[in-house]
Design a protein around this nucleic acid. Structure first.
Lengths: 223, 223
DNA sequence: TAAGAATCTTCATGAAAATGAAAGGTGATC
DNA sequence: GATCACCTTTCATTTTCATGAAGATTCTTA
């Protein structure tokens, strides 16, 4: 398992490197944010431990760089700041976890283990497909920056189709994710009606809802 | 997106439910660990928020149940205990994240969003034979990238033949996999009809359906 | 609190696709 | 060459899906 440590405080950096190596990890360390980006360019790290504030680039900036460049690396942010807004910013920028300094080293190891355990893909906080993008935090859907006006149900369905892309999403899953009582839509044709409306609204979004007869629906990038 | 809340403190539970619903989630709430397991059995939640200690089953126990039963749900643990050893135990039991009470609600939402990004399950293994390939997740079959238009029954049969390759698949197995009531096709010649149509569609797929008289059918790579 | 707007659901209708029964043909096996 | 298993095509039926419109419900706002 390969781990990247980006921390400008020399003492802490050495503690991290030593401790992680003792725990059996292969560790590379840098002391600047831009150096961290360079490392991420060339190596596939399982986990990157980033300090919140560093020379060069901030931790958040490194995180969102990694996300926008589809890096498979899980990101653990270290921060001295304990104010929630900062943490939220970190998480929404694409960090997978964070830890407030000072921290217990055993806990850091546990969090690293938790991060490497989940097969973490490369989902940026904002889902994008074709010209369409969906921001879960803001609950907004845009096409080329132009805001789409979706109803709650339509939003849920769109989010589900985007998250499951390119898989087929069956009616049961749609019912579970977009209705409080999931038995309700299954007896009627509500789902079909929603799909019809959604298709109309997504008409020019570089994306298309394909029906898979007998199975469900699937999102497809329009050619 | 569907979220499960398991928290025995009524006040906190209601705050969670209300806040999450305001944020657009569909929320189910229980106040016991064993009830949480029941819910997880029945629904595909995207995220489960579990209190550390609850009547019935502890949060950790629910987490490890979910893990051993391959549930796609991401788990966020709530704990009043701030001692590192406990946190470590929670993470190692299969929780994906945890939050120490009292917490900032905005941070909880950010963490839930981070957990939702987690890609679910295993990637669909694409079955390939000859020029033919079948993607179970997309429910589509292609020959050299060209999309084949198969009916549900045809798709099921193709999938079965490919999975069992190079074995012979008997009519009973075909009936079981492609029909809801597997006794139905056995009295008639429906299977033969399907096979005929399928053969036509697979004509140029580098693959052939061979009849094994008296036994069933088998896929064969065309030479 | 009541009016108005937005959203959701049901209904009706039409179209498209999939299915299964039937009938006649083909080829292997004894 | 007779029989049996399988093949193929046709066609009527059934299932599934799409969509417009209207009524019902929920939410917002005055």
């Amino acid at each position: 398992m390969r781990v990247l440590v980006a921390e400008d405080d020399r003492g802490l950096r050495e503690v991290l490197v030593q401790g992680l190596e003792d725990a059996g990890y292969l560790v590379d360390a840098v002391d600047r944010g831009d150096d961290a980006v360079d490392q991420l360019k060339f190596y596939d790290y399982d986990v990157a431990i980033l300090d919140w504030r560093m020379p060069g680039l901030q931790g958040v900036e490194v995180a969102s760089w990694a996300r926008t460049h589809d890096k498979p690396t899980a990101i653990l942010m270290l921060t001295a700041r304990d104010a929630p807004p900062d943490r939220i910013q970190g998480l929404d920028a694409g960090a997978d976890d964070y830890l407030v300094k000072p921290f217990d080293f055993g806990e850091l190891l546990a969090r690293v283990r938790a991060l490497q355990r989940r097969p973490r893909g490369v989902d940026s906080p904002v889902l994008t497909r074709g010209r369409l993008s969906l921001d879960p935090a803001r609950r907004q859907v845009t096409v080329d920056g132009r805001l789409l006006n979706l109803t709650p149900a339509e939003f849920h369905i769109t989010e589900l189709l985007m998250r499951r892309f390119p898989s087929v999403v069956d009616r049961k899953a749609i019912a579970e994710h977009a209705w409080r009582d999931e038995t309700e839509p299954l007896g009627s044709n509500v789902i079909d009606v929603k799909m019809s409306r959604l298709r109309a609204k997504l008409a020019n979004a570089g994306v298309r809802i394909v029906t898979v007869r007998g199975s469900g629906f699937r999102l497809e990038e329009a050619h």
